[in-house]
Design a protein around this nucleic acid. Sequence first.
DNA 1: GAAATAAATCAACAGTGTGTTCAAATATCG
DNA 2: CGATATTTGAACACACTGTTGATTTATTTC
Lengths: 194, 194
Amino acid sequence: MKQTDHRIRVTKMLIRRAFTDLLSRKPIQSISVKELCALAGINRGTFYAHYTDIYDLQEKLEDEMTLDFQKALDPLLHSGKEKPTPLAITAGIFKCLKENMDICTMTLGPYGDKEFASRLINLGRESYIESYSRLFSGATSRQLEYYYAFVSAGCIGLLEKWLADGMTDSAEELAATAEGIMSHGIRFLKAPAL
Amino acid sequence: MKQTDHRIRVTKMLIRRAFTDLLSRKPIQSISVKELCALAGINRGTFYAHYTDIYDLQEKLEDEMTLDFQKALDPLLHSGKEKPTPLAITAGIFKCLKENMDICTMTLGPYGDKEFASRLINLGRESYIESYSRLFSGATSRQLEYYYAFVSAGCIGLLEKWLADGMTDSAEELAATAEGIMSHGIRFLKAPAL
DNA sequence: GAAATAAATCAACAGTGTGTTCAAATATCG
DNA sequence: CGATATTTGAACACACTGTTGATTTATTTC
């Protein structure tokens, strides 16, 4: 059952590289199987042996990356006896992203799949919600929903800008910014280091 | 030079209707010219007389809608002698959107063009920035950029949820929620009506 | 209203990517 | 080495594309 065969792993790696390469230059809808295979240097039939079409490839790659991401994030969320602070969680997620730039291309780049970005962000969300819902037990669930809709989209927007600017700021800095905005709104500007 | 011909307007309207219809059910990349024309009840050659492909159609429709939107927003921004409050601007934008649901399909629906949504939001942004940058003159421009990246994406996320939930809340309510989050972050939950 | 003009239709066309099939060649694993 | 699994290459029908030219239909102008 295990994927031992060396040839398959090489093929899939070639496809993955070619795909992220193309995706950094053009939207997924204008990537054809033909050109992908030409770039990867494999036969078109081989592609169809593993994937049904380009979108199936995207899906499978995203699932794979989600697992990697989850694995990388897991120790942060469940290792220590202490519950991590929201800031630590956010910083951890951002650090994971910075260490996996090819994921960022697939999600945060100009032709990225923003839905997938949203799913990645939400991996850490449960812990996040838990931390905050205790603090704001008076709020209606509807308002909480709106709040999360806002801030999860906001974080993605923040990350897009981060990537667009070359990811020069550290993950911790960016996490602090995100936390500041989420906690204090515009007022974070007066106390950025909070 | 004016587009007087009745036939052209009918054709374009049929195409527009068919396009937004299809876009509410499937992503743009799987909409073919053929099926669009079949649904619109026009000849395929007629489509090519006006647009080069589906993406050209999308672009032209978005430009058109941007003008409509701008026109609808203009009186709000420049009519009175008093400068409108940020809340009023936000509420005005949201009201525009609610009154133009087919724009929302093209932007905020599951298969919408989020880039376009972003552009629409930013139409009101200049006034918005002006109002706030006076209040927070001490902040660095970098932080302001991050803040705007966050909140403009956040607003889109909020609007997506609004649309997904059937746009039941009033535009004013939603604008107040957006304002609350943008101004006070998570604390808006304790003072939602602020 | 009639003539001139413009637009939409229809059919046909080559071109390109798709998804599948098969036998042949090649690499991997036991 | 031999059995097995994967990749290759070629061929195939199929569908959509984008364009063309002749024809029909609608609109504008005089």
